[in-house]
């Protein structure tokens, strides 16, 4: 879990030309509109003083992060900076040695991972994890929270209610699948999807849980440029509908085009935070990425 993917950071901005610049301009305009409003509110997610040691290595060292309600917040840093570990600490897939995590004002660092997902903070994985031998539809349906049919005894006595719920959820899942362009694959095995489609499926699955906050771990890694645009568009769409995101990403174009605020992590410590423009011109950040 500690090691980052082997992708090299895509920091140089000349990558901008690979995306269509027109779209990007629109995108940036949108982002500014969203970023302006929710500043005064209590942050949806606030973590402070997080520490995690793996043996002698301090993977996360007194990390702080805040995610404002309704924002798209970025988390960047060189490989091995501890971003994924920080995600694991936030979602409690790994227990932190020290520190607190507040979600919607409530402490969650003592909760088990599945309970965190249930109260509305859902995560995806760096390497997309589709449930291969389940259909795409089943992947989606699984994500629904509080299903009657997930309780053993209900499958004996509440068949009718279960069937009703399944019908409703199936429709909702089809809507989401439609929006991520996977509706035609709904009844295929999820294992038959391409890498990029799996990333989309993971996002759709996360949305299916009706969360308040989605943590995306490298949604654009290993995905072709066209699909990256599609992924970004979906994130922006859902954000406009009120969804909050925290995104780890190495692709700086993606970070710059999506995020309202960016946190930079290096060697497990906070290096900087600010608007994408500030981060991009911060000499310390450049140094961390490119070396002295």
């Amino acid at each position: 879990m500690v090691d980052e993917s082997s992708n090299s950071p895509d920091f140089p901005t000349d990558g901008l030309e690979t995306n269509q610049p027109q779209d990007l301009a629109e995108v940036l305009a949108d982002v500014e509109g969203v970023g302006a409003s929710p500043q005064m509110e209590l942050p949806l997610l606030a973590a402070s003083g997080l520490v995690k040691n793996f043996g002698g290595i301090r993977a996360v060292d007194n990390a702080v992060i805040e995610v404002a309600k309704g924002s798209i917040t970025g988390l960047v840093g060189p490989n091995g900076a501890g971003k994924t570990t920080l995600f694991n600490l936030l979602s409690n897939f790994i227990r932190s040695d020290r520190g607190r995590v507040l979600f919607d004002g409530e402490p969650i660092h003592h909760l088990q991972p599945h309970l965190i997902a249930r109260i509305g903070m859902v995560r995806t994985f760096q390497v997309a994890r589709a449930l291969s031998r389940l259909s795409v539809m089943d992947n989606m349906l699984l994500a629904t929270q509080h299903q009657t049919g997930e309780k053993f005894w209900n499958t004996w006595f509440k068949q009718k209610q279960i069937r009703q719920e399944e019908r409703e959820q199936r429709e909702r899942a089809l809507d989401i699948l439609d929006s991520i362009g996977l509706a035609h694959m709904a009844y295929e095995y999820a294992g038959a999807l391409s890498g990029g489609q799996r990333k989309l499926l993971e996002m759709g699955r996360a949305l299916m849980t009706v969360p308040k906050l989605i943590l995306l771990d490298e949604p654009a890694a290993g995905v072709n440029p066209t699909l990256i645009n599609q992924i970004c568009d979906r994130i922006l769409d859902w954000n406009r509908d009120g969804m909050t995101f925290l995104i780890i990403e190495h692709n700086m174009d993606v970070i710059m085009s999506l995020c309202d605020r960016v946190w930079v992590l290096a060697e497990g410590r906070n290096l900087a935070s600010g608007s994408p423009a500030e981060i991009q011109s911060n000499p310390e950040v450049l140094e961390a990425y490119l070396g002295k």
Binding site: F93, F125, R129, L131, L134, D138, Q145, G149, I162
Partner: peptide, 23 residues
């Protein structure tokens, strides 16, 4: 049933099941 779906999800990848709120 949905109950069985959770079991199959655990067979495939229990981390995913956990991330989606399943005990």
């Amino acid at each position: 049933s949905p109950w069985g779906r959770v079991l199959k999800a655990i067979r495939e990848d229990e981390e995913v099941a956990k991330a989606l709120g399943k005990n």
